[in-house]
């Protein structure tokens, strides 16, 4: 059974989340303090973490960084503030997605499903983007024989771009394909993740060759095999 770790200091909200998620068929583990997360995380090894930003003990952004040090588990931040600093801080710490309170529980479950979904192995299991090779079976990215570690979200984002090499993706399109959003939501999510991804896979992130920006529209895949 899929285990979700819910970290929130508000007991009632945590309990309600527990009810909703149990109803959706997940096993739920409730944590109320930021500094209690890591020991439990190591013991339980959850499949996804729902993480509030404002936490006693240790705040959500710090917790997120700690988890990311040795795990690529999907992390969805829950924020009471829609302010840019909070959101960006969470995403830069390694969160895959965030939900601003008060959120629609149905939407929360939908997005969690997208984050939990295993990439289905397709016939074309070898993809290329820029000078990178994507091995969809092994779930790895190889550049010049070196394996680059990516979170599942970053992997999905790269695969989405690589699957349709000619297409220019608007950020809204990426949001719906990779995050499972309907349009007209916050596109900052995309900007931050593209930046993080570039810092991992580009030789020179200032001059991206793998993920190219199309001014005023969005992003597209770099030509496979192009030298950097």
């Amino acid at each position: 059974m899929t285990l979700i770790m819910v970290v929130d200091d508000d007991q009632d909200l945590a309990e309600m989340l527990g009810i909703v998620l149990t109803g959706a068929g997940y096993e739920v583990d409730l944590v109320s303090r930021g500094d209690e997360v890591m020991p439990l995380f190591a013991a339980q090894n959850p499949d996804l973490v729902l993480l509030d930003v404002m936490l006693p003990g240790l705040n959500g952004v710090e917790v997120c960084k700690l988890i990311r040090e040795n795990s690529m588990v999907p992390i969805v931040m829950l924020s009471a503030k829609g302010d840019k600093q909070d959101v960006v801080a969470g995403l830069e710490a390694g969160a895959d997605d965030y939900m601003v309170k008060p959120f629609d529980p149905a939407e929360l479950v939908a997005r969690m499903k997208v984050r939990l979904r295993r990439s289905i192995t397709e016939v074309n299991s070898e993809l290329a983007i820029g000078n990178l090779k994507i091995d969809q079976i092994e779930h790895s990215i190889i550049r010049d024989g070196q394996v680059i570690a990516l979170t599942r979200l970053e992997f999905d984002l790269l695969v989405a771009l690589a699957k349709e090499p000619g297409r220019v993706f608007t950020r809204e399109a990426l949001l719906s394909e990779v995050w499972g959003y309907r349009p007209a939501t916050d596109t900052r999510l995309v900007n931050v993740h593209i930046q993080r991804l570039r810092s991992k896979i580009e030789v020179n992130p200032e001059e991206p060759k793998v993920i190219l920006t199309v001014r005023g529209v969005g992003y597209k895949a770099g030509v496979p095999g192009s030298s950097q």
């Binding site: 508000d10 009632d12 309600m16 309170k101 008060p102 529980p105």
Partner: peptide
């Protein structure tokens, strides 16, 4: 927002 989230759920 936090109580509103709970109410909503």
């Amino acid at each position: 927002r936090t109580p509103l989230t709970t109410i909503r759920m």
